[in-house]
Design a protein around this nucleic acid. Structure first.
Length: 291
DNA sequence: TACTCGTGGTT
DNA sequence: TAACCAAGAGT
C-alpha cells in the first residue's frame, strides 16, 4: 500500500533524468545553486544558467567575490531575483565561516539566507546522501495521492508533511536519499498536477488514490496568483531595464516601462529597499555595486 | 496562516 | 485566451 520504496527507486534508476546537478562529480555547491535556482523555476530554464554559473563561479568564495550587481545580472530572467542576492549572501557566509564548504547539517543549512525547510534537506540528501524528509510541491502531491488517496495536496503544513514523508524513508542514509529524489521525479514526470500519467506509474497498484477511484480534489480552493498589473510585474519591468543596460540609467528611462506613476515609484522604492537597485550620487539608478 | 515575490511555457 | 503551473522562502 502507498509507496513501495524499492519499486520507485528502481524506476528512478531507469527513467530518471540525467540532470547535470545529479552527476556524481557535481559538488555540493553545484547542488545548492541548482536548488535555489529551481525554487519556483522550471528545470528547462534553470539548466543553461546553472551551467554558466558553475563555469564562472565554481566555488562559493568565487561568487562571494563578485558584486551583487554582477550576480543579479547573471541571474537573468529566472525570476524572483531576491534569490540571487540571498545566494550571494549565503556564499559569503560559507566562504567566511565554513571554509568554503557547503554545510551538510540541516540546522546549519537552515541558518543560511534563502535556505528554508525544503532546500536545507534537499542539499543534505542530494549533495551528502543523508536521510532527510525532502518535501516540495511534487512530493506533497505524490503523498496526497499515493498515501492519502486524495486528488491533490491540501494546504501545506510543514510538520505534518515532513512526518508523512519521514515515514516512507528507509532507515539507511543512501537509500533514503535516493527515494527522496525518486519521489520528486515521480511528481515531476508522472504524478503531475494537471493530467497525471497513471498508465506510466510504477506504483499504480499501490496508489491509494487510484484504488479509491481517483476522486476529485476535495480540499479548500487554492489561491490563484495574479501577475498582470501587479507590483511583481512592474518590478520585473524596472529591473529588466537595468539588466539590459551597461551602467546606471536615468529615472526617465525607468518611467517608460509603466504608466501609473504611483505604482511605478512604489515599486522602484521597494527594489531599493530590497537591495536589488541602488541610486548613485547623481540620482541615477544602477544594479548594486555597479557604479 | 496568508500574502508577497518573476517569468514564461502549457493547456 | 485566461488560467494554471513550476525542486519555496521570508515575513
Amino acid at each position: 500500500m502507498g509507496v513501495d520504496a524499492d519499486v520507485l527507486t528502481d524506476w528512478f534508476d531507469e527513467v530518471g533524468r540525467d540532470l547535470p546537478w545529479r552527476e556524481p562529480e557535481c559538488s555540493a555547491w553545484g547542488v545548492l545553486v541548482s536548488e535555489i535556482m529551481l525554487q519556483q523555476t522550471p528545470v528547462a530554464r534553470v539548466q543553461p544558467i546553472w551551467l554558466e554559473w558553475m563555469a564562472r563561479w565554481p566555488v562559493p568564495s568565487a561568487l562571494a567575490a563578485s558584486s551583487q550587481g554582477e550576480v543579479v545580472r547573471a541571474w537573468g530572467k529566472l525570476g524572483y531575483p531576491r534569490r540571487a542576492l540571498r545566494l550571494h549572501a549565503a556564499a559569503a557566509v560559507i566562504a567566511a565561516e565554513h571554509g568554503d564548504v557547503v554545510p551538510s547539517d540541516v540546522d546549519t543549512l537552515l541558518a543560511l539566507p534563502g535556505i528554508g525547510a525544503y532546500t536545507a534537506r534537499a542539499v543534505a540528501a542530494f549533495a551528502y546522501g543523508k536521510r532527510a524528509p525532502v518535501v516540495d510541491t511534487n512530493v506533497r502531491r505524490v503523498v496526497a495521492r499515493a498515501v492519502h488517496g486524495a486528488g491533490d495536496a491540501g494546504p501545506p503544513s510543514n510538520t505534518r508533511d515532513m512526518a508523512d514523508v519521514e515515514a516512507l524513508l528507509p532507515p539507511e542514509d543512501a537509500p533514503a536519499a535516493k527515494l527522496s529524489a525518486a519521489l520528486m521525479e515521480l511528481g515531476a514526470l508522472v504524478c503531475t498536477a494537471r493530467s497525471p500519467r497513471c498508465a506510466d506509474c510504477p506504483i499504480y497498484e499501490d496508489c491509494a488514490w487510484q484504488r479509491a477511484g481517483k476522486p476529485a480534489y476535495a480540499g479548500p480552493a487554492k489561491q490563484i496568483q495574479k501577475f498582470a498589473g501587479t507590483d511583481r510585474q512592474v518590478r520585473g519591468l524596472l529591473l529588466d531595464v537595468l539588466r539590459g543596460s551597461e551602467g546606471p540609467v536615468e529615472k526617465a528611462r525607468l518611467d517608460l516601462v509603466w504608466d501609473e506613476s504611483g505604482q511605478r515609484d512604489r515599486c522602484l522604492d521597494s527594489l531599493l529597499v530590497d537591495g536589488l537597485l541602488e541610486q548613485t550620487q547623481d540620482g541615477l539608478f544602477a544594479l548594486p555595486g555597479e557604479h
